[in-house]
Lab assay of single mutants.
Amino acid sequence: ELREAFRLYDKEGNGYISTDVMREILAELDETLSSEDLDAMIDEIDADGSGTVDFEEFMGVMT
């Protein structure tokens, strides 16, 4: 189920989504998050600083 959700956002099928897209997902899930909260969450999610979120990083957030 998580893989299907990931595929919805990984429109190009390249195995990752951008941190911008991940930020939008988080904002949709919790509309009360401030910009600073979102920045901090993205920094934590994208631990390797690649600017992308792969499936493993995505799973870590969603579980």
Score class of each variant (00 low, 15 high):
Glu1Pro: 11
Glu1Phe: 15
Glu1Leu: 14
Glu1Gln: 13
Glu1Trp: 15
Glu1Cys: 15
Leu2Arg: 02
Leu2Cys: 15
Arg3Met: 12
Arg3Val: 10
Glu4Ser: 06
Glu4Thr: 06
Glu4Ala: 10
Glu4Trp: 07
Glu4Ile: 07
Glu4Lys: 09
Glu4Leu: 08
Ala5Asp: 05
Ala5Arg: 15
Ala5Cys: 15
Ala5Gln: 14
Ala5Tyr: 15
Phe6Asn: 02
Phe6Tyr: 03
Phe6Arg: 03
Phe6Met: 03
Arg7Phe: 09
Arg7Met: 13
Arg7Trp: 10
Arg7His: 10
Arg7Tyr: 09
Arg7Cys: 14
Leu8Cys: 15
Leu8Met: 13
Tyr9Ala: 08
Tyr9Leu: 13
Tyr9His: 09
Asp10Glu: 03
Asp10Tyr: 06
Asp10His: 01
Asp10Ile: 05
Asp10Thr: 03
Asp10Phe: 09
Asp10Leu: 06
Lys11Thr: 12
Lys11Glu: 07
Lys11Trp: 11
Glu12Thr: 06
Glu12Ala: 08
Glu12Val: 06
Gly13Ser: 05
Gly13Pro: 01
Gly13Gln: 07
Gly13Asn: 10
Gly13Leu: 05
Gly13Trp: 03
Asn14Met: 10
Asn14Tyr: 09
Asn14Gly: 04
Asn14Thr: 10
Asn14Ser: 08
Gly15Val: 03
Gly15His: 02
Tyr16Thr: 05
Tyr16Gly: 01
Tyr16Leu: 04
Tyr16Arg: 05
Tyr16Ser: 05
Ile17Asn: 00
Ile17Lys: 00
Ile17Asp: 00
Ser18Val: 04
Ser18Gln: 05
Ser18Cys: 06
Ser18Leu: 07
Ser18Asn: 05
Ser18Pro: 08
Thr19Asn: 10
Thr19Ala: 06
Thr19Gly: 03
Thr19Ser: 06
Thr19Cys: 07
Asp20Gln: 15
Asp20Met: 14
Asp20Cys: 11
Asp20Lys: 15
Asp20Phe: 12
Asp20Asn: 13
Asp20Arg: 14
Val21Leu: 14
Val21Arg: 12
Val21Cys: 12
Met22Glu: 00
Arg23Tyr: 03
Arg23Thr: 01
Arg23Leu: 03
Arg23Ala: 02
Glu24Gly: 13
Glu24Lys: 15
Glu24His: 13
Ile25Val: 07
Ile25Gln: 00
Ile25Asp: 00
Ile25Arg: 02
Ile25Lys: 02
Leu26Tyr: 02
Leu26Val: 03
Leu26Ala: 02
Leu26Ile: 07
Leu26Gly: 00
Ala27His: 12
Glu28His: 14
Glu28Cys: 14
Glu28Ser: 15
Glu28Tyr: 11
Leu29Met: 13
Leu29Thr: 06
Leu29Gln: 07
Asp30Lys: 07
Asp30Tyr: 14
Asp30Val: 08
Asp30Gly: 05
Glu31Gly: 14
Glu31Leu: 12
Glu31Ala: 14
Glu31Cys: 11
Thr32Asp: 07
Thr32His: 10
Thr32Ile: 04
Leu33Asn: 01
Leu33Tyr: 07
Leu33Ile: 06
Leu33Ala: 05
Leu33Gln: 03
Ser34Met: 07
Ser34Arg: 08
Ser34Gln: 06
Ser34Pro: 03
Ser34Lys: 07
Ser34Phe: 04
Ser35Gly: 10
Asp37Glu: 13
Asp37Pro: 01
Asp37Leu: 08
Asp37Gln: 13
Asp37Met: 12
Asp37Gly: 05
Leu38Tyr: 01
Leu38Arg: 03
Leu38Asp: 01
Asp39Phe: 05
Asp39His: 06
Asp39Ile: 06
Met41Cys: 07
Met41Gln: 04
Met41Lys: 08
Ile42Pro: 00
Asp43Glu: 12
Asp43Phe: 13
Asp43Met: 15
Asp43Ser: 14
Glu44Asn: 12
Glu44Val: 12
Glu44Phe: 14
Ile45Val: 09
Ile45Asp: 00
Asp46Phe: 04
Asp46Arg: 04
Asp46Lys: 04
Asp46Ile: 04
Asp46Gly: 04
Ala47Lys: 14
Ala47Gly: 09
Ala47Cys: 12
Ala47Glu: 08
Ala47Trp: 12
Asp48Ile: 06
Asp48Lys: 09
Asp48Phe: 07
Asp48Val: 06
Asp48Leu: 07
Gly49Glu: 06
Gly49Trp: 04
Gly49Arg: 12
Gly49Ser: 09
Gly49Asn: 11
Gly49His: 12
Gly49Leu: 06
Ser50Lys: 11
Ser50Cys: 07
Ser50Met: 06
Ser50Glu: 05
Gly51Met: 05
Gly51Phe: 04
Gly51His: 07
Gly51Lys: 06
Gly51Cys: 05
Thr52Arg: 11
Thr52Pro: 01
Thr52Phe: 08
Thr52Asn: 08
Thr52Leu: 09
Thr52Ile: 09
Val53His: 01
Val53Tyr: 03
Val53Pro: 00
Val53Phe: 05
Val53Met: 03
Val53Ala: 02
Asp54Ser: 15
Phe55Ser: 02
Glu56Pro: 06
Glu56Ile: 11
Glu56Trp: 12
Glu57Met: 15
Glu57Lys: 15
Glu57Cys: 12
Glu57Phe: 08
Phe58Val: 02
Phe58Met: 02
Phe58Asp: 00
Phe58Cys: 03
Met59Ser: 10
Met59Trp: 06
Met59Gly: 03
Met59Phe: 13
Gly60Ser: 15
Gly60Leu: 15
Gly60Met: 15
Gly60Glu: 11
Val61Gly: 08
Val61Ile: 13
Val61His: 10
Met62Ile: 08
Met62Leu: 08
Met62Lys: 04
Met62Arg: 03
Thr63Tyr: 09
Thr63Ser: 12
Thr63Met: 14
